[in-house]
């Protein structure tokens, strides 16, 4: 057991090292995320001038939601894991994992976790810089239960995001070019995952349907718990659904891996 864990610990440490090399990339991306926050700030401040509340929330609460969502994304979002898997399959680099006693999903997940530790810490730098300007707009609700439920939701959200990216990567066994599928999914995630607007602003019927889709649980759900957009009872009711999605997607990922390997041709020595 210890030996099994040790190899993933090594993969995690390797991932940490290689991602620290690309810290400037993460730094630039996180700075641009705060530019995105400027878009959010300008747009929603202008929208709130004609209407002091939207869906029962004021401007400060909506801005807090978007700031939280960005931070959550840097800690648990899948950035380019699908492309990395795609390249490993296309270039035949995946062959080395077929000959070694290592689980490819866990290996990739260890690297993903390391990358998120680096990107999550890097995003705190522009956040600290922006705090003097943003600080007085942010209103986080009190209640330790929000942290107690929000962190598990965040961990499962990360697992869902990684598994979705892993599944897209697996599509390389069938399609050489998967970029179109990935960007299509990004467009869906941006709407159904609450990146364009808080989902509770949608008509009630549409919001109820979205609550049963996996996109809702990627980063909207933890961000909504932290920022008080959903109640404790609602959070408790949805945690099992989130866990069910994580399990279902893991099952799908395993299936795609097994079926994909049947189609895979390893060439060369």
């Amino acid at each position: 057991m210890h030996a099994a864990l040790n190899k993933y610990r090594c993969a995690f440490l390797l991932g940490l090292q290689s991602n620290v090399v690309y810290r400037w990339n993460f730094a630039i991306r996180s700075c641009f995320s705060f530019f995105q926050l400027a878009v959010v700030f300008v747009l929603w401040r202008a929208a709130y001038q004609s209407s002091p509340t939207m869906g029962g929330f004021g401007f400060a609460q909506t801005l807090t939601y978007f700031v939280t969502l960005i931070i959550v994304q840097f800690f648990i979002g899948a950035f380019n894991e699908d492309y990395q898997i795609n390249e490993e399959i296309r270039n035949g680099l995946i062959n080395q994992f077929l000959l070694k006693p290592i689980n490819y999903f866990l290996y990739r997940f260890s690297i993903f976790t390391a990358a998120r530790v680096v990107s999550g810490l890097v995003v705190l730098v522009p956040l600290a810089v922006a705090m003097p300007f943003l600080g007085h707009y942010l209103v986080l609700p009190h209640g330790a239960w929000r942290l107690a439920l929000g962190f598990p939701a965040m961990a499962m959200g990360g697992l869902i995001q990684f598994t979705v990216a892993y599944c897209f990567g697996m599509l390389t066994f069938w399609f050489l070019e998967i970029q179109g599928f990935i960007i299509l999914s990004m467009a869906l995630e941006s709407v159904l995952g609450g990146q364009m607007f808080p989902l509770d602003l949608l008509p009630a019927g549409a919001y109820r349907v979205i609550q049963y889709l996996p996109f809702y649980y990627q980063s909207y759900f933890p961000a909504a718990i932290f920022t008080g957009r959903i109640s404790g009872w609602e959070a408790l009711r949805h945690l099992p659904i989130q866990a069910a999605w994580a399990l279902a997607l893991f099952g799908l990922a395993s299936l795609l891996w097994r079926r994909g390997l049947l189609r895979h041709t390893a060439v060369g020595g």
């Binding site: 709130y48 004609s50 869906l188 709407v191 364009m196 607007f197």
Partner: peptide, 24 residues
């Protein structure tokens, strides 16, 4: 389809916001 989806996403955002406000 990808491009159409992104166009729809942006239009949808405007439509959702204007359900709650009259002017930006």
């Amino acid at each position: 389809l990808v491009e159409l989806m992104w166009t729809s996403v942006n239009v949808m955002m405007i439509l959702v916001i204007y359900q709650h406000t009259t002017s930006i």
